[in-house]
Amino acid sequence: MNCEPVDNNEAELIRQLRQGSRPAFDALVEIYKNKGLSICYNLTGNIEDAKDVLQEVFIKVYFNIKNFEDKARFSTWFYRIAVNSSLDFLRKRKKMYNLFTSLPKNEEGEEKEFPDTRYDPARVLSSKESAAVLDKSIAELPYKQRVSFILKHQNGLKAHEIAGILKCGVPTVKVHIFRAVRSLQKKFTSGG
């Protein structure tokens, strides 16, 4: 996934969006919809949920563009909103689950936030045992490890971009991913 610095055209669109321009908003939706969908899908695990969350992301962009600082990269700001919105969505769904049952906890005592893989056609098509075990294992990771791993290995973001999204340093991101890989490797090779 490319994340080049904001080009002039994008900067102009952002300037126009600050003044409430709908055409500028539509153009930014067009530029970021695929990248956004990919992030929301990898975090929520379901294309319809991803669609819903991504709409919310763009609405947040529309209403909060005035808070975006020009020094920052728009892509990083946008991805951060996409990640936070997806995690919010999972938390809300977890609360719904909690009304009926309590979820198991991960190694750090956090309740697991399961992406919904039940109704996803793509998931059914690739229903190899190994993929299922991996999905489950990723869902069980502590959230910063999970987000870092997914953004790097399922969305192709670079460590410095992930650092911008999680508002931490690049070495911290590398540690998160390293720990995620080690933990997945353990579960994966021992059959979950």
Binding site: D26, V29, K33, L37, S38, Y41, N42, I47, A50, K51, L54, Q55, D120, P121, A122, S126, S130, A131, L134, D135, I138, F149, H153, Q154, V181, L184, Q185, F188
Partner: peptide, 22 residues
């Protein structure tokens, strides 16, 4: 492990999906 994780692509979506989305 990484190969498997990276193989998990976002499902292909068509024009109708994006039309509904917008």
């Amino acid at each position: 492990l990484i190969k498997l994780a990276e193989a998990r692509k976002t499902p292909e979506v068509n024009e109708a999906f994006w039309h509904d989305f917008k």
